[in-house]
Design a protein around this nucleic acid. Structure first.
Length: 222
DNA sequence: CAAACGATTTTCT
DNA sequence: GAAAATCGTTTGG
């Protein structure tokens, strides 16, 4: 029997991450720091929240795995060129919304993809949205799945993450460095040498972290 | 204007 | 493990 219980000690109040948090210019650092933060979405149906347990960094125009590689500044990617802390949400495979956080000042298109959540609040609503009869780790594992569970849609692209209805908060969870693992990003095999870079981060042993499609981590120097 | 392509997920074998 | 689902974005003619 899977143990889906909430494994975090959480404080009694949360603090919304400020615009400055996203504007340090250190995307890899933010990708790691976002582990343990709480994503919150409130809709007329109710409030859902989950702890971020897996992220990936996308490092701008020189990153062959990024949408903005080689300066592809298009209607879709315009959000990535915008202010830090806005949500870059796009449609993938015609079906799945993907949530990213813009992590660099205007003009520098870097972002962090949110790949998995440990569900905290609104779990029954998530289950309904995911059309699951029984709860299991597939509820919020994977970037498309977590957006469906949270009710996040690509029409919400470019929303600031300090909005009243969509935000990321700090609830005092600190993930120790030795509980953070890294490896290669998923689904970017086409990106040649950049596919090998360890820009994916996750909380060790967390049940909701994506299964790796290939052997990992592929430890590469630099 | 036509065609190929996904930072994926689910279902079927 | 293989293949389908499904459509906006991007690229090529």
């Amino acid at each position: 029997m899977l143990d889906l219980s909430f494994p975090f000690k959480i404080s009694n109040k949360g603090q919304c991450l400020s615009p400055a948090y996203y504007n340090e210019g250190n995307t890899v650092g933010i990708a790691k720091s976002l582990l343990g933060k709480v994503l919150i979405h409130e809709t007329p149906e109710g409030l859902c929240a989950g702890v971020i347990v897996e992220t990936e960094a996308y490092l701008g125009e020189s990153d062959k795995a990024a949408h903005v590689y080689n300066g592809r500044r298009t209607k879709r990617t315009e959000t990535m060129y915008g202010p830090a802390g806005h949500a870059y949400i796009y449609l993938c495979y015609g079906i799945h919304s993907m949530l990213n956080v813009v992590t660099h000042r205007e003009g520098i298109p870097q972002a962090v993809l949110i790949r998995a959540l440990h569900p905290w609040k609104g779990i029954e609503l998530m289950r309904q949205r995911r059309n699951k009869k029984k709860l299991d780790a597939s509820l919020t594992r994977g970037p498309g799945s977590l957006c469906q569970a949270m009710g996040i849609h690509y029409s919400q692209d470019n929303t600031p993450l300090w909005s009243t209805h969509l935000k990321i908060e700090d609830w005092g969870l600190h993930i120790a460095e030795n509980n953070i693992l890294s490896g290669t990003r998923i689904g970017v095999a086409y990106a040649q040498e950049d596919a090998l870079r360890p820009y994916r981060f996750w909380i060790k042993d967390n049940l909701f972290v994506s299964k790796a499609p290939r052997p990992y981590p592929l430890i590469s120097k630099n």
